[in-house]
Design a protein around this nucleic acid. Sequence first.
DNA 1: TCAGTGACTAATCGATCGATTAGTCTCGTG
DNA 2: CACGAGACTAATCGATCGATTAGTCACTGA
Lengths: 199, 199
Amino acid sequence: MDRNTKRAEETRKEILDAAEATFAERGFAAASMREIARRAKTSQALIHHHFDTKVKLYEAVKQRFTDRFDVERPTKGAALDPTFIISIVRGYFEFLRAQPNLTRLTAWARLEGDEQAWGASDGIWQRAGEWVRRAKRAGLIRADVDDKLMLVVGAALVQHWIDHRAFLCRALDLDPDDPELDERYLVQALEILVRGVEK
Amino acid sequence: MDRNTKRAEETRKEILDAAEATFAERGFAAASMREIARRAKTSQALIHHHFDTKVKLYEAVKQRFTDRFDVERPTKGAALDPTFIISIVRGYFEFLRAQPNLTRLTAWARLEGDEQAWGASDGIWQRAGEWVRRAKRAGLIRADVDDKLMLVVGAALVQHWIDHRAFLCRALDLDPDDPELDERYLVQALEILVRGVEK
DNA sequence: TCAGTGACTAATCGATCGATTAGTCTCGTG
DNA sequence: CACGAGACTAATCGATCGATTAGTCACTGA
């Protein structure tokens, strides 16, 4: 491989890293190509050279998340014992907590009207729905629980905490630096969810 | 009152209405004074005449929400029977659903780093916390339920649906125009919450 | 009647935006 | 060694931003 090409790929990665951080922090509209260039320690024109337009750079950032997501997501289903809800919700919680940039980018995309964001997460809902139906047939979940709406409830418990953690800590006078706070919330939310759906 | 003053107040109201809609739609940064002026059918300079800076106009919009909120919120506590959780959560749900502009403005404010947004909602958490503690003493809620974290769970169930309704309908193939969808979700979420916390 | 106040407009300011241009420099290849 | 390709830079484009200026107009109170 060319030394030129190799350097170019390093530059592209640095630009993508800077763009991801900037888009996550400021959203698409307020993220300037100049700030991205400054963070990537390159020039603004070079970003246009590699990614053409700002929109295409944004889509490249999203694509990288999709690729990362496809690699990291678990491929095998969870066991069908009474703890399966806990393991699924915990998995979702840890995944979102490990990727704060993705969380913020999704929130920005929703407000900025970017509807075709994060296509990778499509499959998740179908697999989660299948888990719920299997658990219902196995008698772990009440029959009158709606499959899809229960998924919404589970997602709400995880995502709302991840998204609003700082605000909730301020409003409820919780210590945001408490290392056990996330675990305490998750245990509490899971306790309510499991008791709420079990037979 | 002056005819001048009266006309000025009408103009101020029209500007505030246009600003509220624009800030809710685009956020603070991306909302331009020119678009607000166009919606209010006035000139950009006139907005500066009445509200000085863009920041002060934004704060005037927030202040109007605070005033509206203080008027509309219920002043008397809910009854302490087993349905009290339902009535409180329903009240919160209806309140948020009736004010989509407030919901979006709050979401924008969180992402844009406006930490001192919506001071009016401070009191809500304290009163809701007091309700939970009273219900616990009355034996309606399990003793091992954490007061504050249960409030987070309740808020999550309501707010996540309000915020992500359109996205969730797309992801889960639900009909967003179904007039009974909101009610179905709320019933399902409340069923899980009530069963999850009751003794 | 007339001076003063405030609502309102047109024109324009400097700053910043995404994007483009022209050009330099460093390579691998014929 | 010569040359073309591609990585990269400096300078600048027109558009749009929030804000300001100078000025017109309607109305009130002395």
